[in-house]
Design a protein around this nucleic acid. Sequence first.
DNA 1: ATTTTCTCCTGCATGC
DNA 2: TGCATGCAGGAGAAAA
Length: 270
Amino acid sequence: MPELPEVETICHDISASILKQKITSVVIRNFKLRYPISKTLPKILTGQKIEKVSRLGKYILLKTKTGALIIHLGMSGNLQIKPRDHDLAKHEHVNIILANNLSLCYHDPRRFGAILWTTKDSLKHKLLQNLGPDPLHITANHLFERAKSRRLPIKQFIMNNQIITGIGNIYASEILFAAKIDPLQKANSISLNQCKKLIKEAKRILKLAIKHRGTTISDHKDGKGKEGSFQNKLKVYGKEKIPCGKCRTKLKLIKIAGRSTFFCPSCQAT
DNA sequence: ATTTTCTCCTGCATGC
DNA sequence: TGCATGCAGGAGAAAA
């Protein structure tokens, strides 16, 4: 699903259309997401103005005067700006209709996403309060310190959003390949230098992916419904049995914690 | 406390 | 064509 670059792209795209806009109505067609959508959400949101749009890891926050709407896109979700009277797409579960006659449309076939309202300081929300730092801001020392007590594979470690937010299955493989780190290497055996390299490559790859408006393998669409292009820049994800771009060794596909993991057994040898 | 497994759901590719 | 199977970009909860 949407990982950091995809969420960032969507967040950026929808901002211009919804910022400072008043919500005139909210339509919910399916309440059953990962957590049930609150029945009172339309009543809460109607009449409120969207004052700020921001991203926290893979979460999108729409702030109003009295609270924040927390949106997560799960595996297959997206948010698009459409005219108020657009043709309804399949799996379009929620519409937030604005005074400018545009509609913020939440679309999510697998319904692993979430839409939650909080009146507290949103950072204190249960789902957000324990999130790790954003990879675009994290330091190598921080990652190194956190890794010391963990012996799970480094790939699993960097996909844990309590450690570092925003890195999902695609970019985890890409980052570890670029940093020449074996995805199976235990987190507590990662050196400070490896952490530095990992973070450097994470920043480079995630920024580049944002520039390319994300990776569209099957689902990702930006805020206008268009596909990203970073799938054309991937070096290892989905490329098992294809020669490594650096050393020509055949890339390998293994499962780590049940997730497909792509790497070069030669470049990323421990 | 950390790590592994299970779970939510639809759609698509594959094989019979 | 139809049906069964397995897999897909996430991540919290339960189990180990």
